Amino acid sequence: MTLSPIRKVFQGVADRHQMFRMFDRHAQRPNRWEGDDSALYRGEWFEISEPSRDYMLEILPPLWLKAEMFAMREFLTSSITSIFFTLSIDGRIRHFHGYCDLADKGSCERMRAAIIECESRPVRAMTREERLEHIWSSTADDYRGYAGERWPKADRGKRTVLLYGGKEGTFLKLLHQLTDAEISAKLPVHLRYLPDTIAA
């Protein structure tokens, strides 16, 4: 499972419980401690509240602190760590968490620019990828997972979600293969009818 480019993984402002849950959205992945999983996390971002941002600042002294951002001292994997942003967007101060690769010079500034660009869209919209990432982020661990041995070899390790099929009962489906109707059914009502936007 390879992800990487900068991507929004949750719509709305995550509360503290959701924030901690999303810090490791990929905890259930198979072979978790084998190999470098940096690409799973690098580029993920979501909005948080000011109290959550302040709480994270007070946990440990930051690795570094700049005007609009600070880095966590503890690394998630290799050179990937949490960066917390405080940004003025359309005249409002907002707070965000993102995973940046500190070995990649300029990664924090690129993420900052991507967040501002995304959140400054004139019309609230979502890409198909943002819809899928929100579904993954908001689905309980018991209802999401990874394709295992019973799946075709090419699909093993890909993300799955549990769907309700009416008379047929529940069944697992690969996240990236959800139809538009299935995506709509899995999204909260206030996100179902947002227009599509072109991925940056």
Rank of each mutant, 00 (worst) to 15 (best):
K8V: 00
G91Q: 15
W33F: 13
R53V: 03
D54F: 15
E117C: 09
I80V: 01
E44D: 10
P62H: 08
G98F: 01
D104E: 15
A39P: 09
D104L: 05
E129K: 05
C118S: 10
F75W: 07
G91H: 09
T77M: 08
G98I: 03
T81N: 13
M22L: 14
I48T: 00
S82M: 15
D36C: 11
F70T: 07
E130Y: 02
T86W: 05
R7M: 05
M22T: 12
C118N: 05
G43C: 15
S107E: 15
R73Q: 15
E68F: 02
Y55N: 04
R42M: 04
F70I: 08
L76I: 09
M19A: 09
A14M: 13
I48C: 02
T77V: 11
F46L: 03
E117W: 02
S49W: 00
M69H: 06
D15Y: 03
S49H: 07
L60F: 12
E117N: 01
A27H: 12
D37Q: 15
L87H: 10
E68C: 09
R73T: 11
Q28M: 00
F85P: 00
F20I: 00
T127W: 03
R112S: 09
F20C: 11
P30C: 02
E47A: 12
P61I: 10
Q28A: 10
S88E: 11
I59K: 06
F85H: 07
F10R: 00
I116W: 08
G43Q: 05
R92D: 09
C108Y: 02
M72C: 11
D104Q: 13
I93F: 15
P61G: 07
I116G: 02
S107T: 04
R25Y: 13
M111C: 05
L40D: 10
E117F: 06
R110W: 13
L76V: 12
P122C: 14
S88M: 08
A113I: 14
F23H: 06
Y41V: 04
E119C: 13
I115Y: 06
H97F: 03
I115C: 07
R16Q: 00
E68D: 10
L57N: 05
